[in-house]
Simulated scan of single mutants.
Amino acid sequence: MRYCTSLETFPSVINLRSLKTLNFSDCSNLMKCPEIAKNIVYLNLKGTAIEELPKSTGHLSDLITLDLKDCKRISNLLESICLLKSLVTINLSGCSDITRIPNISGKVRFLYLSETTIEEIPSSIGSLSRLSCLDLTNCKRLKNLPCDVSKLASFEKLILSGCTRITRFPVVSSNIKKLLLDGTKIEEIPSSIEYCFELEELGLQNCTRFHILPSSFWNLVYASLDLKFRSGLAIKM
Rank of each mutant, 00 (worst) to 15 (best):
T99M: 14
I98Q: 03
N103T: 04
R109C: 07
Y112P: 03
T89N: 04
I81K: 02
I40V: 13
T48S: 10
K69M: 14
L113D: 15
G106W: 00
E115W: 00
P102G: 14
E35H: 14
N76C: 15
T89P: 00
L84M: 13
T48L: 08
G47L: 01
I40P: 13
S28W: 06
L113Y: 10
I64W: 10
K85M: 13
K85G: 07
R73S: 12
D97A: 11
L78I: 14
I36N: 02
I98K: 00
E52R: 12
V41G: 08
I81F: 01
G47K: 02
D70F: 07
D70A: 10
G47R: 01
K85I: 11
I64G: 06
N29R: 15
L92S: 03
N44C: 09
I64P: 01
V41H: 10
P34N: 08
F110N: 05
S86F: 05
I90D: 12
L53E: 03
T57R: 06
T65V: 13
L84R: 04
H59Q: 15
T48I: 05
S25M: 04
F110Y: 10
L83S: 11
L77D: 04
E79A: 08
P54V: 15
N103R: 04
E52K: 14
I104K: 06
E79I: 06
G58H: 04
E79M: 03
S96A: 13
D70L: 12
I74M: 14
D97R: 14
E79C: 02
N39D: 09
K69A: 13
K107P: 09
C82H: 00
D97F: 07
L78E: 09
I74K: 04
A49E: 15
D67I: 01
I101P: 03
D70E: 12
S86Y: 03
P102D: 13
R109Q: 08
T116P: 01
N44L: 10
K38T: 09
N91R: 04
L30V: 05
V41S: 09
K32G: 08
S96F: 11
K55Y: 08
K38C: 11
K46D: 13
C33F: 06
E35A: 15
L113N: 14
F110P: 07
P102W: 04
I64M: 12
S25T: 04
R73L: 11
P54K: 14
E51H: 10
N103Y: 02
